[in-house]
Nucleic acid binder design. Structure first.
Lengths: 237, 237
DNA sequence: CGGGATCTTGAGATCGTTCAAAGTTTGTGG
DNA sequence: CCACAAACTTTGAACGATCTCAAGATCCCG
């Protein structure tokens, strides 16, 4: 359940609810938001938690992760600034959280009492409708990601992640070389893409040797040939 | 977006909305449902379709599938009797369908005009809320499936599918040997689990040779050792 | 300028795929 | 009811992609 939000008091202008509700309609919700900060690695939601959390991410990046019995972690989703976290009306009864939600970077967010979110939604059907439509869209996106994880080669997964990160960075295309900062470490990329650290590293090197990208150091990536990168990403999507 | 539904006129008693709404509240929706049948292999929704479809599955099994540029198919979800298909309030504007929805068996369903579904939901917030909560649950389930596809071995995927099919068949546990009929062919299992037909077949044989299951022929599976089966499924979930 | 964490690279093992062929089941028409 | 064809399933052998284990190299922080 992730949707762009607008929290006047928090100073973030999101995408989804903004277009749907007038700012003053959001006031009752914004008024009860509590500012909160998370350090890198800090957990906002533990899988199995009964106490539901509703919050709006302002800065930083979070991961939704699943840890299997063997102790391996899989990142099943990322949350960016503007995204909403929470499961209002979760089945009527308190539904235990399905996954961990952890800060990948220092995060600041605006947290709301769930009951208040639910009451606000009852009062503003447009808001609930926006959340529903956002959730439906997210469901489609996760299914598409599922299909990629099922069949795509390691190279395609890595190329796809770089492409997506570039889009998220706002640096869309442009004929010139663009440089982005990957939001994840190699290990985190591996957990997200269902690969090992070594395989991720090897594919990065391969793209570099092919002249498609440059690796000037750190987490920086220069995109030399966006078309070739997109093509690599599509190889068995 | 899949949720159990109750369509009085269609004679199906689902799980989700039933508990939430009185039957007479559903009348306006049920009244405008159109009975429809699909042959095996027939497509209800094409990916990219603008015309949104809302329907309630009464009998049969459908797949939600994604076909990648290379022509490979991945089944990203299954729809069972009682499940609801559709994306009401899809982003305000008509959102093109993200995936194909195809009948795996002969299917009968009850189809509604989307506008009517939306109007009914506006009139009955409890219904919309039930859909939201169902969708959130489904999102969690798909994410969990994502984590399995990312890491689980072929054996675990196949064992997990058999276990899940057994649960769906209603045959829960019981100390005695239970026999179920798998709803999918080997090829469909392969598309669902991200494997090849041959690998699926080999894992089935492996489970049979280990005495965990029996394969009396056709799509039938005898579950001899549910614990061992569950254990095989958890090996790297 | 260390020192720990992160990243890269190599060599060998493993798991799943590919290609190929034989064996079953299913459904149809005589 | 049987015969036959088509579709589906099983099995085998070789290949290839990714993982595992093991060193180095590099980056980042104090």
């Amino acid at each position: 359940m992730v949707f762009g939000n607008s929290c006047k008091q928090c100073g973030v202008r999101g995408q989804a609810l903004c277009g749907v509700l007038a700012d003053e309609e959001l006031a009752p919700l914004a008024a009860c938001g509590v500012q909160r900060s998370l350090a890198r690695g800090e957990t906002l939601v533990h899988a199995g938690d009964q106490a539901p959390i509703c919050a709006n991410i302002q800065r930083g990046l979070m991961k939704i992760s699943h840890i299997n019995p063997a102790g391996q972690e899989v990142i099943v989703g990322l949350l960016w600034p503007g995204d909403f976290v929470g499961t209002p009306f979760a089945g009527g009864q308190p539904l235990p959280a399905a996954h961990d939600i952890v800060a990948l970077t220092p995060v600041s967010l605006c947290q709301f009492p769930q009951a208040r979110v639910e009451r606000t939604m009852v009062a503003h059907p447009a808001m609930e409708r926006a959340l529903l439509s956002r959730t439906l869209a997210e469901l489609g996106a996760v299914r598409t990601r599922l299909s990629r994880l099922a069949r795509a080669t390691a190279l395609a997964r890595v190329a796809g992640f770089i492409t997506e990160s570039a889009h998220r960075s706002g640096v869309d295309d442009g004929e010139t070389v663009t440089t982005i900062e990957l939001p994840l470490s190699r290990g985190e990329m591996a957990d997200l893409l269902g690969l090992t650290i070594e395989t991720v590293s090897r594919q990065m090197t391969r793209l570099k040797n092919a002249g498609v990208i440059g690796l000037p150091g750190g987490r920086r990536v220069e995109i030399h040939d966006p078309d070739a990168l997109a093509e690599a990403a599509e190889e068995l999507v």
